[in-house]
Amino acid sequence: MANYDWYWTRVRSLDEVLPGFRARLLQFHDDISDAFFERADACAPGLIQDAHEHGEFELELGLRVSHMKSRIFKRSEGLSALADAIALLEFAHRPQTANNPFAVCAVDLLMSCYHTVDEAGYANERVAVAEEALAKLEPSAQCFTCINHAYTCALVDARRFEDALAAVAHYREVEVDSQTNNAAKLLAPLAAIALTALGRHEEGLAELEGMRARGVELGEYDQVLEVLLLARLERGDEAWALLERLDLGELRLTTACEYGRALVVLSRGPTAPRCDAHLDRLWTLHERACEREMYYYATIILQTHATVALARGRVELAARAIDAAQPILGRLRSPARMHAKFADLRVRLAAK
């Protein structure tokens, strides 16, 4: 039985002992679905307490997983959610919940939270956790795709690009239901990132084109990644045409790094002046990342902001971005690589 089939069957069985519980729980899930997060946050503790006090620990696990998904996946919470994600994993592996399907979701959530907090700094730990989880899962398991996605993402963040491509190839070999397009939707973009990091930009673009061929609609992240690939292939006019069709007003922070990297490439070409209009947005994105304690994203955004500003002769903006990065770098778990990048930017700034 699928995770949520089991979940709702159990909820219905509690109608007599917990009157009104199902109605409150349905409203809780509706609020999450409709992005009424303040209402969901207010409702969650009472639901979790009721389930716990009635000994419904597996139902409690499902509630905590659902709430944490809204925080990490829908609101991109990082450091503010980390302690709760760790506590959730501990609860999920207690004897009374360890065999519940939601226990694997807790693993995925913690890896995703670490990814948001500092994707590079925690990459090796995420790889190890994912490998342990995958060793216990059959390809037919409902969570097999999610953990494979988290595993491949961690390999990319660890800069193990060939291993990431091997992981994608293995998943495609063992995928139980290819009609779901899970490999196309979740793993093709990661394959594209690994390929472009290895200089294989045409193959990376082919991964995204393959998504379209399978009827998968490219999301915001996928389209910005496509802009980056087109830019690296020196197809600047196509890259700008796609970028200008996108709604960048509410750009997600998980997309912002690829957006900044695309602008870096475009700032080197004949259409570089068009990058000027995007510098303010990069600065705003860095501020949003800091507000959410997503410090790795903030440093990447500032690095791309400073690089584009230098390319455009906007020395004062580059200096501001470099200075803003210094206190943030100290919050990273493994800051050496980013320190080196900003040291190089300081040298380039001094030469202006």
Rank of each mutant, 00 (worst) to 15 (best):
K136G: 05
R212M: 12
R232G: 06
S178C: 13
A192D: 02
G46R: 08
L251Q: 00
L187D: 04
S80G: 07
A318V: 07
A123I: 13
M211L: 04
T116E: 14
D237H: 15
E56C: 10
A321M: 00
E162A: 11
L198R: 09
L79D: 13
A164K: 04
G215L: 05
A350D: 14
L187Y: 04
G313Y: 01
E132Q: 11
T9S: 12
V265N: 01
R126G: 06
L349G: 11
L233R: 14
L195H: 03
L190Q: 13
Q303Y: 14
V117F: 02
A85K: 01
M111G: 01
D50Q: 09
R245Y: 08
A123Y: 08
P273D: 13
Y295G: 03
A92V: 06
A123H: 05
E226Y: 07
A183C: 11
L243Y: 07
E131V: 07
L349T: 15
L263D: 00
A241V: 03
L263N: 00
L186D: 05
P45D: 03
A81N: 05
A319Q: 06
L246A: 06
V174R: 07
A98K: 15
I193K: 03
D163L: 06
S267L: 08
R333N: 15
A277Y: 02
L251E: 03
K352R: 14
A183N: 09
G269M: 11
D163V: 06
L242D: 06
C257I: 10
Q142T: 09
G46N: 05
W283A: 15
A83N: 05
L218V: 00
F342I: 15
K136P: 04
S66E: 10
H278Q: 15
L208P: 00
D276L: 10
L155R: 04
S112F: 03
N148Q: 05
Y151D: 02
R331N: 12
A35V: 09
L165H: 08
L14K: 04
I147E: 01
D5F: 11
A298Q: 09
E258C: 04
A83E: 09
Y4A: 03
A23M: 03
D157H: 15
T255C: 05
R159C: 13
S66M: 08
S33L: 07
L82F: 09
A87R: 05
V168G: 01
H305P: 01
R71I: 05
I301T: 01
E244G: 07
Y297W: 08
D50A: 14
H54Y: 13
L285M: 14
F28K: 06
A51N: 06
P19C: 14
N148F: 00
M111C: 12
T9F: 11
E220A: 08
A158D: 14
E119H: 10
L329Q: 09
A133M: 02
A350G: 13
A133Y: 01
E293L: 15
L248R: 13
T152D: 04
A23Y: 06
E217C: 14
E131K: 13
R172D: 11
A135V: 04
D177T: 11
A81R: 03
